[in-house]
Design a protein around this nucleic acid. Structure first.
Lengths: 337, 337
DNA sequence: CTGAAAGCGCTTACAG
DNA sequence: CTGAAAGCGCTTACAG
């Protein structure tokens, strides 16, 4: 930096201003400095910067310990944003079965240096309802909850609408009885997706048969179980909307075991567009979204919150609603009969 | 730190020594300092540390752009080690179809600040054979290549032995004709796993029928195609060893389409123990390993290389061989006939 | 085994 | 619009 200042004939301070855009600098000086930076290949030293500014956001990512495709995209997005912004990331596992350990996990993260939190499902949900949460006064953003969370800003999709679109798509293929396997109550996505399923019925002036909604837990096995319950019922559905891809692949596995023809005997839809969606046969019609981009946006929101936090500003950050899209593959088609 | 020194009645320097274990400190002083650290809740400032030591490793992770379960585990391990050691991580995508862009990718990573490289497959393989690679003099470690790579230290498994064990397991169930779907030549794992397949035959005094080995590309579709080739041959195998789980799930999908009974009509084995292994029916017998731990070890090796690099030491780091284990699930069983 | 002091490369009130 | 200078919290030859 000193070399740049020397070459441009200005003070280090001016160079700092140019690099950071902190203050107005005359365009002539600006140009001179830019040129010197270019010529010398100057790259600011992050360590010195954060030491001097005493302001360094270190992101704590509190994830439930199931390793999955979602985590991969989440990490990719978080890392992209973090390396762009020069931030540290700390990972901590959280057992959703022990919500009482939430604060302990956050404290461990804080001890490791984290001072801002990214909360994927179902951690965001747990935090939102935790009375202890407010105590640890750290900026937080929930990534991909199914609906808005009280007191925690989020980057999310309109999952209710997405589920409604998906179920409408199934109706449009001529199905009349559509089953749903819901997710666990700990995920706000479960309720949102069920709401969408109900809304699609309502739009058609229909009332969904309550026996067509069976509970699941977002994992493969619960998809198998849910499908068995639905198919063994007195008046089985001709299509099943599984609330995520893992359960949808369970439905498909059970259908294979029973030698059903897909999608003729049974249409299946999922949600998430994880890699498994293209690794089953028939390939899965599902709802896709860019989790990587959502995570990046989440980090940016965190930075914004932190700024308004330190500068005393009180305006709460609003949820960012990301796009989703219906991905039509082969597992949904007209019913045979 | 000053407060700690004051409280312990020593110099900051001594505190630094205690914290870092850089130098010998008398046990009495050591204890005093530890106590002061505890009492004051002192946590070292990373920024100041790296500024002062002018020694900061920033890891560049050059991954092929397929998002998958492997990447997730790799990222988790890398992040764990990085946050423990206080390191930055930079991500860069690499298109394996364009090996000519390897150096450009590395340069982009370097521009972002990376000064050490972690190379998952097939990037490590590409680098190992790239004449341009030597030019960019950066410490590098390959994570999970199938075999040792020339000129690049690696943390890996004995994949040849793992494949041999798996094929032996299939033999032990009474199979005599075992097919293999190999991986792409760009992955060293492909050759290693094929070698293991051949070795298992050799151990039994058998020579593998060359028509039982068909090429694949590690993706679901190539598993379907490979299985079709094998099953349509004049003398089809009773078991198929797919060189990874994605292809194994393709084999299973094709078997379902053909209404085969698994594992009675066809046994299937995979490699990697990705989440899909438990999301197919029957669940997949496969080879598991702790990729997260391997990535952590990789970061540690990188640190070791970098130290010997800067201190002028020339001793090359040796490969670290990690454990693997056979995971017996339901997709391998005795042949019906 | 222990310490005083310089210095790492930035940022930022404070003047002008 | 621009600058001199203090200071961020550590590490590390160099002495003793």
């Amino acid at each position: 930096m000193r070399d740049v200042a020397l070459r441009a004939g200005v003070s280090q301070m001016t160079v700092s201003f140019v690099v950071n855009g902190t203050k107005n600098v005359s365009s002539g000086t600006h140009h001179l400095v830019r040129e010197a930076i270019e010529a010398l290949g100057y790259v600011p030293n992050r360590a010195a910067r954060s030491l001097a500014s005493a302001e360094e956001m270190r992101i704590g990512l509190l994830h439930s310990n199931v390793p999955n495709a979602f985590l991969s995209e989440l990490l990719t997005g978080t890392l992209n944003a973090a390396s762009r912004l020069g931030l540290q990331i700390h990972l901590e596992k959280f057992d959703p079965g022990r919500p009482d350990l939430l604060v302990a996990s956050i404290e461990r993260l804080a001890a490791a240096g984290a001072n801002a939190l990214l909360l994927p499902p179902p951690v965001g949900e747990h935090a939102a309802v935790s009375p202890l949460w407010r105590a640890c006064d750290m900026p937080a953003v929930a990534v991909a909850p199914g609906a808005s969370l009280s007191g925690i800003a989020a980057v999310r999709n309109d999952e209710r609408q997405a589920a409604c679109d998906m179920v409408s798509l199934i109706f449009d293929h001529g199905h009349r009885r559509i089953g749903i396997i819901t997710g666990p109550p700990s995920h706000s996505a479960s309720q949102a997706r069920l709401d969408g399923y109900l809304a699609a019925h309502a739009e058609r002036g229909l009332t969904a048969d309550p026996s067509l909604a069976v509970p699941g837990s977002f994992d493969f096995t619960s998809g198998i179980d849910g499908a068995a319950t639905l198919l063994d019922s007195a008046d089985p559905p001709t299509a099943i909307f599984a609330s995520n891809d893992a359960m949808a692949s369970g439905v498909i596995a059970l259908a294979h075991r029973r030698r059903l023809d897909l999608p003729g005997d049974l249409s299946v839809a999922g949600f998430d567009d994880t890699p498994i969606a293209t690794q089953v046969w028939p390939t899965l019609t599902t709802v896709g979204r860019d989790v990587t981009a959502m995570a990046e946006k989440g980090v940016e929101m965190l930075a914004a919150i932190r700024r308004s936090h330190t500068s005393g500003g009180g305006c709460p950050i609003e949820d960012h609603i990301a796009e989703y899209r219906l991905i039509r593959r082969d597992s949904v088609g007209p019913p045979r009969r």
